[in-house]
Write a protein that binds this DNA or RNA. Sequence first.
DNA 1: TCAAAAGTGTTCCGAATACACCCATGC
DNA 2: GCATGGGTGTATTCGGAACACTTTTGA
Lengths: 241, 241
Amino acid sequence: MKFPNSYYISDYKLPINDYFVFGLSVDCVIFGYQEGEIKVLLVQRGLEPFKGNWALIGDLVEPKQNLCDAANNVLEKLTGLKNIYLKQFFAFGSVDRHPLDRVVTVGYFSLVNSMDYKPIASSWAKSARWFNINDLPELAFDHHTILLKGIETLKDEVRHKPTGFELLPPKFTLLELQLLYEALLGYKFDKSNFRKKIIEMNILKPLKEAKENVSHRPAQLFEFDEKRYRALEKEGFSFEL
Amino acid sequence: MKFPNSYYISDYKLPINDYFVFGLSVDCVIFGYQEGEIKVLLVQRGLEPFKGNWALIGDLVEPKQNLCDAANNVLEKLTGLKNIYLKQFFAFGSVDRHPLDRVVTVGYFSLVNSMDYKPIASSWAKSARWFNINDLPELAFDHHTILLKGIETLKDEVRHKPTGFELLPPKFTLLELQLLYEALLGYKFDKSNFRKKIIEMNILKPLKEAKENVSHRPAQLFEFDEKRYRALEKEGFSFEL
DNA sequence: TCAAAAGTGTTCCGAATACACCCATGC
DNA sequence: GCATGGGTGTATTCGGAACACTTTTGA
């Protein structure tokens, strides 16, 4: 490697080659929403180390691959979905986090609408399963730590940005939205007040369609108006609750 | 390296050795507060590449060094201060972010009380300077991107957590606190309302001392009550504004 | 006595809360 | 008709915004 003797300004006397010994990986915390509960997608490892344990999906980053591309690839390989909501949340770099060598991993979290998710025929997908985030199995590596940090980030994000919409189908009713937020935040809303608040934000586009095949009055459907949200955001509007 | 043929479950056929080619560094965005303005500490590079440009301080991580230890070391080497507020905010991993080789860098941001900061006699400190965050010089590498992300993170953090206290001396007056938050957030508060709000949060410990040597009525001094804040946080209290 | 900042009190308004109530549909 | 969720209206409360005012110090 044609690296100078010091990267920034360092006191190290070691040849610089000795510094290019890191492995780099990405791990994805994939959230979904089913039956009123927040789920996370895990796979069962088929190889050592930690063979048989459940784990986040992830992979080593290639030498010429951008971090976010690596994360997108991992996600696409498992779900077949492209352009999914994907956000980096933390880099985990403890010396001993991997039993065999020095691997730094970057955590991404992702929200998928479970209806879109069709496990595809890969060695991964066969062993993939959704777990309730309050009822997790033992995890490989430091994936438990990563997952907890991911959940924390999700909750922070949900409270201040209209993140949750990614978990719903594109068209949804106000009650569905309310139930989702109740699951995400862990507390109840008053129906009337929740509606008033979200409607007045002006980030939902009311549709002329209604829910069908329900044994009660059919509810109006809405879409998240992303364009409108971006516009409001620029004006200083900030999503709360 | 005794690495198995696949890290997680991968389709790669390459020998695994080819994946351990990453350099890893940390870069610190160090914020300070002087004369009512938010500053950031930069150093002038003495070596190629980007010799002469201003840059964040940072360094390569050693093979057996934890990420956060690396960041702390960098900070200590420049300022002589240990146990400073330091928080990871993002990993920057573009393939081409470094002109000479593949180096992934992890950004940390830090808040220091400028009174504590005494540049120490090192090759770094000689060329260190505080810059107003609205008046930045040209920066080396992708440090401008990193810095902007750091500023963004700071503003998010400040709004939802009692972060700003690190920028003040341990004992401060309410007006000093107000002016700091005005600088951080970019807008004014009403004196009376600001006081009421912050006092009612119960996270400040009023002292029996007062500011001295001022040509007007001396103000009461306060301390941030970290213990109390942690306790309140556990009960679900959330700091806002 | 004046300037400058410390510190307090009060009114007003809008938003959040807590309910109560009516509507539409399938069975 | 009744169960179920859809959808609306309103009185009350609480907290924030705006602003005025008094106090204490040094010069």
